[in-house]
């Protein structure tokens, strides 16, 4: 932790701390968007935002430790995110054909 703070004090250059800040911001924006938006597509984009936040943190840490495993991890994460995107769009289209709306509030059948 102290090492991170020491790096952060090196103004003028982009440090690990900056990357982590951006990744945390992406993740937090994703959570906020997920909880506050109603449209299924937007909600899905918010989860993607969270995935990319985690991915950015992985790359930054990988660079910090000079360990390429972090970047390898990100490639796997991207693959999973692509699979999830295909699945999400499939499910959303499937549901849209039945209900003609993408509003998450319109799910009257399942209470609570």
């Amino acid at each position: 932790m102290t090492a991170l703070l020491a790096q952060a004090s090196a103004f003028g250059s982009v440090t690990l701390y900056h990357y982590l800040f951006v990744s945390a911001a992406l993740f937090a924006l994703g959570v906020i968007g997920f909880l506050s938006r109603r449209n299924l597509i937007i909600m899905f984009l918010c989860t993607e935002l969270m995935f990319q936040g985690a991915g950015l943190a992985l790359i930054a840490f990988g660079r910090h430790w000079m360990n390429p495993t972090g970047q390898v991890f990100v490639i796997f994460v991207l693959t999973i995110a692509a699979a999830e995107a295909a699945l999400a769009l499939g499910l959303v289209v499937y549901l849209y054909r039945r209900k003609s709306t993408l509003d998450a509030q319109a799910w009257a059948e399942l209470a609570g």
Binding site: F27, F34, F44, T47, M50, F51, A54, G55, F61, G62
Partner: peptide, 19 residues
């Protein structure tokens, strides 16, 4: 959707563990 939210959460946790 909730599963994706959870997946992103533990992925971020894994990223922190790696860090």
């Amino acid at each position: 959707f909730l599963g994706a939210l959870a997946a992103a959460t533990f992925l971020y946790g894994f990223a922190m563990l790696f860090g």
